[in-house]
């Protein structure tokens, strides 16, 4: 049975395995023919959405992997605006609005409200959470 899935990522990359597991789960679900309605990044999970990460060359680049998967599978990657602002993740519009000298949101991500998470819970057959 093919399912419509919502994905919630609650932890940041590298400190915690949650975002690696969420990435591998999302990729595998797509390969199995399931639909990913949305991937929502909350708490420190918003740190998956910065394009400023520069991990060592012999390590995985998780942020880039998300961006590439989003482009390939037309994923809707949504970063929570309130959580993102606390942690310094800004798109062009938000950076301008708050008078910051740069934005750092990665390609394929967009910033929006928590309503997008609740909507994923309503619309998806299953909401799958990654994090503690």
């Amino acid at each position: 049975m093919e399912l419509k899935l919502g994905i919630l990522v609650n932890e940041g990359p590298y400190t915690h395995q949650a975002s690696d597991t969420a990435y591998h789960f999302t990729k595998a679900a797509l390969e199995k023919g399931h639909e990913i309605f949305r991937v929502f990044f909350y708490h420190d999970g918003v740190n998956n959405g910065t394009r400023f990460t520069v991990p060592p060359q012999d390590d995985r680049n998780l942020q880039k992997a998300w961006s590439e998967l989003a482009a390939k599978a037309k994923l809707d990657l949504v970063v929570c605006i309130a959580a993102a602002q606390r942690r310094g993740i800004l798109d062009t519009g938000e950076a301008k609005r708050h008078g910051k000298d740069s934005d750092n949101l990665a390609p394929g991500f967009r910033i929006s409200g928590l309503g997008q998470l609740v909507e994923a819970g309503i619309v998806a057959d299953r909401l799958v959470t990654f994090g503690d």
Binding site: G113, L114, G115, Q116, V118, E119, I122, V123
Partner: peptide, 18 residues
């Protein structure tokens, strides 16, 4: 700020959220 109020498919459903 767009809080993404429920639209389209979400409108009719009512689920138990915990």
């Amino acid at each position: 700020m767009n809080d993404g109020k429920a639209t389209n498919g979400a409108a009719g459903a009512k689920k138990r959220f915990m």
